[in-house]
Design a protein around this nucleic acid. Structure first.
Ligand SMILES: [Mn+2]
Ligand SMILES: [Mn+2]
Ligand SMILES: [Zn+2]
Ligand SMILES: [Zn+2]
Lengths: 138, 138
DNA sequence: CCAATAAATGCACGTCCATTGCACTCTTAT
DNA sequence: ATAAGAGTGCAATGGACGTGCATTTATTGG
């Protein structure tokens, strides 16, 4: 049994061929991926299967869902020890307006915000839009 | 000529009956509004007209568009002296998971974030989700 | 190993909201 | 008054997400 299979099983996910492939695909990407990205990478696979695979990964807590404001859901594998299910790994995300890629800035946590009294925060989403390091050429 | 008509004209918007009505509607609301909200308030009006009115208001800089993560676009009248067109009025938004309302917290600016080198920030969106003061009853 | 059962996949369809094309109407300028 | 321009109404499109159900594949336990 490979490392990936172990990871999946440890999280209550049966390691089917498709799931292993998708996991590998996500693991080697350094950016957040959209359903379409996977669809293009696995043309033989059915969109629904890919969709539900991402859903399963998310439900079981090995990927987190990213809303980068583009209207297209992105996903990224969670880091070791990520507590995003508990809304406790609130790192920010960067979306490049040039190449349209979105990245997790996992060590840039969302700063704590003092809300007006009466407001109770449960979750937070911070997306910075701009030019990524690759596109800025710096 | 009323105050509202002046405001519209000053921003290059011809003050039609519909536009004045929508402006008034937004002005008396303390929360961000969705197209559907206007639609429900003006049942006789066409959805497209309302849609394009919001678009015009946004283009001319008297309304800002809010992405609260619900997938439904919200809009709010800009404050006096708002520079949101220049991405320089980056206040945060609060979305209540109970009553589904979204509010501008105009005096809670998004804190400055130090990005990794090479990344150039152009815009930022911070949405806090939780329970609003009305729903929390505090 | 085989049957019974459960899980995963494939296909088709539906939904929701945003957006556009085009014709018609109203306003403004000459 | 006429022409040009801006606004509006109606119909249709499109993209992305989501679901119901039949079929296939994997697991279990005899
Ligand atoms: Mn995570
Ligand atoms: Mn504004
Ligand atoms: Zn880029
Ligand atoms: Zn509320």
């Amino acid at each position: 049994m490979t490392e990936i299979e172990k990871t999946l099983e440890n999280n209550g996910i049966r390691p089917t061929a498709m799931r292993i492939l998708i996991y590998k695909f996500m693991a080697k990407k350094e950016v957040a991926i959209a359903l379409t990205d996977i669809e293009n990478a696995f043309v033989k696979a059915e969109r629904t299967t890919l969709y539900r695979t991402l859903k399963t990964f998310e439900d079981k807590g090995i990927v987190h869902h990213i809303d980068d404001g583009t209207g297209i859901s992105k996903y990224a594998l969670c880091e070791q020890g990520c507590n995003c299910e508990l809304d406790q790994d609130l790192h920010l995300h960067f979306h490049c307006s040039n190449c349209d890629k979105t990245v997790c800035l996992t060590d840039h946590k969302i700063p704590h915000i003092n809300l007006p009294s009466g407001y109770i925060a449960e979750d937070a989403n911070l997306v910075i839009t701009g030019i990524c390091e690759k596109c800025s050429g710096q």
